[in-house]
Simulated assay, not measured.
Amino acid sequence: MTFSLATWNINSVRLREPIVLKLLQEQTPDVLCLQECKSPVDKIPTEGFAALGYTHMIARGQKGYNGVAILSRMPIEEVGSEDFAALGHARHIAGRLDNGVTIHNFYVPAGGDVPDRQVNEKFGQKLDYLTEMRDWFRAERPRKSILVGDLNIAPREDDVWNHKQLLKIVSHTPTEVAHLAETQDAGGWVDVTRQDIPDGPLFSWWSYRARDWSAADKGRRLDHVWATPDISNAAHSSRVLRDARGWEKPSDHAPVFACFDL
């Protein structure tokens, strides 16, 4: 069985329903994981998704911010959600497909603007969130699992447009990169995107502030697809749908795709 999966920080699923439908119609992933839905679960516009065959959804929602959802053409059973760092935020949902694969959908806190937890509470919350993710994966060693989402960290030098200029910018600081690496190692996670595309600059986010985001190309790879070692070799065809960043009323993130032969 081959299935395709996409992850996308949609920055309001209700406001951007038209481009979610466009993605589902044109790219037809079997599973679409959304972050920053900014909607209570009962307000997510599921009718249009269902009409395209995405009749299954599991989600956690909040009014106006955060929120994660998994849309699927295949049956998916919710198997939990975690509130790491006790923030009370809707930032994680996990589901299991009929083929036994568990999908974790995460929206890691952005961390504010100042990379110092002494003066910026949000940065401390981000590090605490990652630490608790790490400890959870150490205790609950995942198997046959995929982790996706906006992890809000660009770990590699070629995951940002300028490594030296961004070393003190939240999302690429050495402290954050180290925390993410510990989390990845704790679960034995394989970075599927970089397994498929090992070399060269690769971005999934471009700021709204840029007058011409594509020409400036000051991007970062904040959105990730990981898999446990027992299924990582089944992954292939990873890509970033850069064009979606230029769609009408776009998110500042582009969808990231992968396929799995399982």
Rank of each mutant, 00 (worst) to 15 (best):
T2I: 14
F3P: 12
T7L: 04
T7E: 14
N11K: 03
S12W: 01
R16Y: 02
I19L: 14
L21H: 10
L21T: 09
L24V: 14
Q27S: 06
C33H: 03
C33I: 05
L34H: 08
K38W: 05
P40W: 07
V41P: 02
I44N: 00
I44H: 05
P45G: 01
P45R: 06
P45Q: 07
G48R: 04
A50H: 04
A50C: 00
H56G: 04
M57V: 01
G61Q: 06
G64E: 08
N66S: 15
G67W: 12
V68R: 10
V68C: 12
S72W: 01
P75E: 15
E77F: 07
E78M: 14
V79H: 07
E82L: 13
L87N: 12
G88A: 01
I93M: 11
A94N: 09
L97Q: 03
G100K: 03
V101I: 15
F106E: 14
Y107D: 11
V108G: 10
G111V: 13
G111E: 08
G111Y: 05
D113V: 12
P115D: 07
D116C: 03
R117H: 08
V119R: 01
V119P: 04
N120Y: 10
E121T: 13
E121Q: 11
E121V: 11
K122E: 09
K126H: 07
D128R: 14
Y129S: 05
Y129L: 03
T131H: 10
M133W: 15
D135F: 01
E140G: 11
R141P: 00
R141S: 10
I146L: 12
V148M: 14
G149Q: 07
E157K: 05
D159F: 02
V160Q: 05
V160I: 03
W161F: 14
W161L: 07
H163C: 02
H163F: 02
K164S: 09
K164F: 02
Q165F: 13
Q165M: 06
Q165T: 13
Q165P: 02
L167H: 05
L167W: 06
K168L: 09
H172C: 04
T173A: 13
V177N: 10
L180F: 13
T183K: 07
Q184W: 07
D185V: 04
G187H: 09
W189E: 15
V192F: 02
R194D: 14
D196P: 13
I197Y: 00
P198W: 01
P201L: 09
S204K: 11
W205D: 09
S207H: 01
S207N: 06
Y208H: 05
R211H: 13
D212V: 08
W213G: 05
A215D: 07
A215Q: 13
A215W: 08
D217G: 07
G219Q: 11
R221Y: 08
H224N: 00
W226S: 11
W226K: 01
A227Y: 12
T228R: 05
T228G: 00
P229L: 00
S232C: 08
A234C: 06
A235V: 08
H236M: 00
S237F: 06
R239P: 14
R239F: 03
R245Q: 07
E248W: 06
S251C: 02
S251V: 01
F257G: 15
A258M: 02
C259I: 02
F260C: 04
